[in-house]
């Protein structure tokens, strides 16, 4: 039986800077994961629904516009509403250190700031999966 880690890589909000999201998508693929890439301008509703249909192990979001305090918690809220508690949710982008405690309390497992090596993110996903099958 061949188990693959599946990750949804999404850009919530209106920000169009997707260099980081694309680099991480490629790095996850090269680490043997299956990456579902949803592109720009995703609403939290679209992200959650896609994550559920694709049955991903992890949702990875990137925001550089400063809208993270609104959009990240909204994704967590929707997951909770739908009783989904086994998807690991992580974020990245330009996110001030002082916002991280709030985002973590909302359920975002980890925030990866600028300059994070892709390997750190890959290792984090592998080590923190919420399910084995």
């Amino acid at each position: 039986m061949e188990r693959k880690i599946r990750v949804l890589v999404a850009k919530p909000g209106l920000d169009g800077h997707d260099r980081g999201a694309k680099v991480i998508a490629r790095a996850l693929r090269d680490a043997g994961m299956e990456v579902i890439y949803t592109g720009l301008r995703q609403t939290p509703e679209q992200i959650v629904q896609a994550g559920m249909q694709e049955d991903v192990d992890c949702i990875a979001m990137s925001i550089l516009s400063g809208a993270h305090n609104h959009l990240f918690p909204r994704v967590m809220e929707l997951l909770k509403e739908r009783k989904v508690d086994d998807i690991l949710v992580i974020g990245g982008g330009v996110i001030p250190e002082s916002d991280i405690p709030f985002l973590k309390s909302a359920g975002i497992a980890e925030i990866f700031g600028p300059g994070t090596p892709t390997k750190v993110t890959i290792d984090f996903i592998r080590a923190n999966l919420k399910r084995n099958s």
Binding site: R26, R29, D30, A31, Y37, T38, E54
Partner: peptide, 10 residues
């Protein structure tokens, strides 16, 4: 690598 990028959803 056995990995894949699945972009049709976009």
């Amino acid at each position: 690598t056995g990995g894949a990028i699945l972009g049709d959803r976009i």
